[in-house]
Design a protein around this nucleic acid. Structure first.
Lengths: 232, 232
DNA sequence: CCCGGTTTGACAATCAATTGAAATGCCATG
DNA sequence: CATGGCATTTCAATTGATTGTCAAACCGGG
């Protein structure tokens, strides 16, 4: 059901989280080393895994790799450093989110909930009806049907455009940085001279036109990324 | 100033890079084995190190470990293509970026520049405490949406202004000295005649106007730094 | 081989950060 | 109270970087 697997060698932390999560209505299982973690993970009983990057023996990245060879279960990584690179690498290897230690358990729970909400709607592969449509303003995107309606009128998007819009809508009102966008939409790291993202944004904008109120739908946050504007 | 140390046993490559970097305005120093590399690195003359993973004798990882015991200088690792594990290990040990060989020198330069610039944006994405909006008096700053509201009205800030305000708000009521501000906001140390900070403060003030009670929002602490005033 | 889609490269346009120079204001000193 | 030195402020100009857009090259699937 809603079972979380925590892989972290810090037993105190595990206990703390276990208590907290239980209160929040999750079932919890903890593993304190990589091997146990991996085998637990592969039992496929957990609906989400919280994984520490810093583990004795095999690193959390190794564990993630093993898990990913067999399973698409959502993974949140914990790390000591708030380092941008870690985040990118983690996401590159298929982590779903990332939280620098020390963190507030409440925030972890919030992120977990967010991921599970997301998990329901994305990953089209093994669940046909997995897609609840995303609605932001006059824009409706149906991941299952791969359709987009603007004020009721359907528009045609290419694969990349569609997935880019999907990401932006899922984070409507929030800034999505270019690295993340590249990773999720193009499936690769953005290299310095890569103009793809810009080009796709450009064509998305062209196809989508403006908001009912006349403003751009996708706002550029110079030096950072883009943001789907929520008009209210 | 801007000196790069290259540690790579491939002398041809070093020469190539040296030439390229020199053209780009860097000073370059090269070391072709681990020992020389480490001792050079510990002289602390380089503002950034480019380090090959594959070195005869001690591996690049060893070198990195030695360097990290004494220094936080940014390090870019060169790895064999496709060897994901290497990259991961490297990053875990505190490298700041990686680039799979073979690479385009231009890309390396671009990444180096990005790292040197990174301080500006790094804390904007995933700092501890990120996610919640900061509220001080009538001022609300939302790092995720990158918005600032003053008494409910939104104002537009540039990247540096935003990040500067974020820092000031996080330390509201406390003095933030110019050095710290420069380091966190601009990602570099302040040189004697650098007035960037002042200018940014100036434009922040202009954009933000005064407190509801008429006083300046950002107070100058002469000879020290600035302070966001908490009006009560 | 053709076709749509994606990426790349060039160029233009835009915007922000820095620098220079001058103005202002603060403080200490006589 | 006037003055000079120094730090800060501000404005304008410059420089530099990022992004928008077009068109051509590329790529993989029919």
């Amino acid at each position: 059901m809603n079972r979380i697997l925590i892989i972290d060698d810090d037993i105190e932390l595990c206990d703390l989280l276990t208590e907290y999560f239980t209160q929040e209505g999750f079932e919890v299982k903890a593993a304190h080393d990589s091997e146990t973690g991996i085998s637990q993970a592969l039992l496929d009983e957990a609906s989400l895994i919280v994984l520490d990057v810093m583990l004795p023996g095999q690193s959390g990245f190794e564990v993630l790799r093993h898990i990913r060879e067999h399973s698409k279960v959502p993974v949140v990584m914990l790390t000591a450093r708030g380092d941008e690179v870690d985040r990118i690498v983690g996401l590159e290897m298929g982590a779903d989110d990332y939280l620098p230690k020390p963190f507030n358990p409440r925030e972890l729970v919030a992120r977990i909930r967010a991921i599970q909400r997301r998990a329901v709607t994305s990953h089209e592969s093994h669940e046909p009806e997995a897609g609840k449509t995303l609605k932001v303003g006059d824009c409706e995107l149906d991941p299952g049907a791969r359709t987009v309606l603007l004020a009721g009128n359907s528009i045609e998007l290419t694969a990349v455009e569609f997935s880019m819009l999907e990401i932006l809508l899922r984070n409507a009102g929030q800034v999505v940085d270019r690295e993340t966008l590249a990773k999720k939409v193009l499936g690769r790291r953005l290299s310095p001279f890569d103009r793809s993202i810009d080009v796709h944004v450009s064509s998305l904008r062209k196809k989508m036109g403006h908001q009912p109120n006349g403003s751009e739908r996708i706002k550029t946050i110079r030096g950072t990324g883009y943001q789907y504007l929520v008009s209210h």
